[in-house]
């Protein structure tokens, strides 16, 4: 990536512009074996594992120490959650298809798959909104009991992550043509690291679904 720096100083009325070349945005660093963006996303995902790990631990501790605990299967909407599970699995497939098509030089198809991934995100959030709406109608709030507190916190935080991914996918879609034309490899790498993030978010749901909704 080439970044245009601010003029460092003016000499005789002429401003000197310096271009700073940021290394390893496309090629792997010899010491880490990966390009900078990939190292960054894995460090971020490591912190995310700790965040969600703490929440899962909290759920286990609350549940094992509670005299009674509602069954998610009886309290929550299983058909909607099942649809959302398959929806997210499908979105992981489409994001890989988008990346693979970029690697093969098929931008149009890649954009189509990115669009489908984004659509899956919208469907997920729509279903979640319906689910939350029904819970509120039945006066089930985070303050109702520990079960609903953990349900709303964990699914809410996960939903925010889905929303974050959707913002990035929108940006990648809107800038695709210009970016791909100018820095093809860099754009492909950006889609790859967004795909890694998206897979992680989907994996979190894969664990959330049985833990909260079934057991």
């Amino acid at each position: 990536m080439t970044a245009h720096a601010e003029p460092l100083h003016a000499v005789g009325g002429h401003e000197e512009h310096h271009e700073i070349e940021i290394p390893y945005t496309v090629h792997a660093r010899p010491d880490t074996g990966v390009y900078n963006g990939k190292l960054g996303i894995w460090l971020f995902l490591a912190s995310e594992v700790m965040l969600f790990g703490a929440l899962f631990s909290t759920l286990i501790l609350l549940r094992t120490s509670a005299p009674t605990w509602p069954r998610g299967f009886e309290e929550l909407n299983i058909p909607l959650a099942t649809i959302n599970t398959f929806n997210l699995i499908a979105s992981s497939v489409t994001v890989v298809m988008a990346w693979a098509n970029l690697r093969l030089g098929k931008l149009k198809r890649a954009k189509l798959f990115l669009g489908i991934t984004l659509l899956c995100g919208f469907i997920f959030m729509g279903i979640k909104a319906v689910e939350y709406g029904t819970k509120f109608q039945h006066h089930h709030y985070p303050s109702t009991n520990n079960f609903f507190a953990t349900y709303f916190v964990m699914t809410g935080l996960h939903g925010l992550h889905v929303l974050g991914g959707m913002v990035v996918f929108t940006y990648l879609l809107l800038t695709a043509d210009k970016w791909y034309e100018k820095h093809r490899d860099q754009y492909t790498n950006r889609v790859e690291i967004t795909g890694l993030y998206w897979h992680f978010v989907d994996l979190v749901w894969i664990f959330l679904f049985p833990t909260l909704y079934l057991l």
Binding site: S92, V96, L196, D202
Partner: peptide, 9 residues
């Protein structure tokens, strides 16, 4: 890579 992570997923 995304390829490997997808297989893991």
């Amino acid at each position: 890579s995304l390829k490997v992570f997808h297989i893991v997923f």
